[in-house]
Design a protein around this nucleic acid. Structure first.
Ligand code: ZN
Ligand code: ZN
Ligand code: ZN
Ligand code: ZN
Lengths: 163, 163
DNA sequence: TTTCTTTTGTTATAGTATAACAAGAATTAA
DNA sequence: TTAATTCTTGTTATACTATAACAAAAGAAA
């Protein structure tokens, strides 16, 4: 599948999807959560794009496959997947992205390309630590972090330079 | 750059508003931009709340005062104020906040209280530098940063503890 | 089986944002 | 000053994002 331009170009994305789904099954089993058909398929569809997927884009894909096509269906699935840590929401895009590290507790930090709209998740403990420390200086107890950086990815920079 | 937006700092907020409006006038004049009636009043209304204001909340306030009450009116004003750096958008709240440092080029980093919904802007050069460096490691050219941290503010932590 | 809980179906509505084109106001050029 | 230009606002319509509320069905537990 996917020959399209994406940040981890060169890898076999099917492996990503398979691994993610397997992790999801495991985590849900461990936590006594049910990865139902629609939840599982939603996760799979989100993973099939490296780009974050909007709720209604996802809804359309699910509808094509015969799932119920009312908004609550997809938002419920998304809520479940978010709560389980299997996906992240990119706030600045109102879109959702599979998480490749669902088995580790972490915050989603993102690099978003303005040009190709691909999103890369990154995880830097030093920045996380700095943020906690800075918040603590204000006597602020940190709970969640939305870290979304936009700009030009490597590939788009190269493409722009040669254009 | 950190106390101005704080809900419980006991300052005279009218001074904030006045200062912000004066800065806005100056910046617009310098840059040959027009701070029209509706733009100016929108900025003032945003400043009159410590909490970020939603577009439609703002629209309602403007409508009360006889301004045109169709959505484009408020979104145009917001677009102008954003472009001029006079306000920030808090992505995770779909809401807008006056910037107390519009005269300095900077990114808006926010501490958002889950309890009282007040927002504090903070600015830490070291975190900014780290983010640029980390992005550069991925050959990613950083353009914008959305940094929104949620949790419990000092006052709400205290209130919760004593409750 | 019966009961309880979780999940899904369904309809309606709330909330956020932009497109497209017309009209008006301000600036500039002639 | 008038005409041309540019910027701003008015107006209508629509697209996009998300949730409320209640009914029905499915799954787990008793
Ligand atoms: Zn992740
Ligand atoms: Zn790119
Ligand atoms: Zn600011
Ligand atoms: Zn608070």
């Amino acid at each position: 599948m996917s020959e399209e331009h994406h940040p981890h170009s060169g890898h076999n994305h099917n492996d990503c999807i398979e691994a993610a789904l397997e992790t999801a099954e495991q985590l849900c089993t461990e936590q006594g959560q049910r990865l139902t058909k629609v939840r599982r398929r939603a996760l799979e569809l989100i993973w099939e794009s490296h780009r974050p997927l909007g709720a209604y884009q996802l809804l359309a894909k699910l509808a094509e496959e015969g799932f119920n096509s009312a908004p609550p269906t997809v938002y419920r699935a998304l809520d479940f997947l978010l709560a389980a840590g299997l996906i992240h929401k990119v706030e600045s895009m109102n879109a959702f992205l599979g998480c490749a590290h669902a088995d580790k507790v972490h915050k989603g930090y993102f690099l978003i390309c303005d040009e190709c709209h691909n999103v890369m998740e990154f995880d830097y403990q030093d920045i996380h630590a700095s943020l906690i420390a800075r918040a603590a200086e204000q006597d602020f107890e940190l709970r969640s972090e939305t870290i979304e950086l936009t700009g030009l990815c490597s590939a788009c920079k190269a493409a722009g330079a040669s254009a």
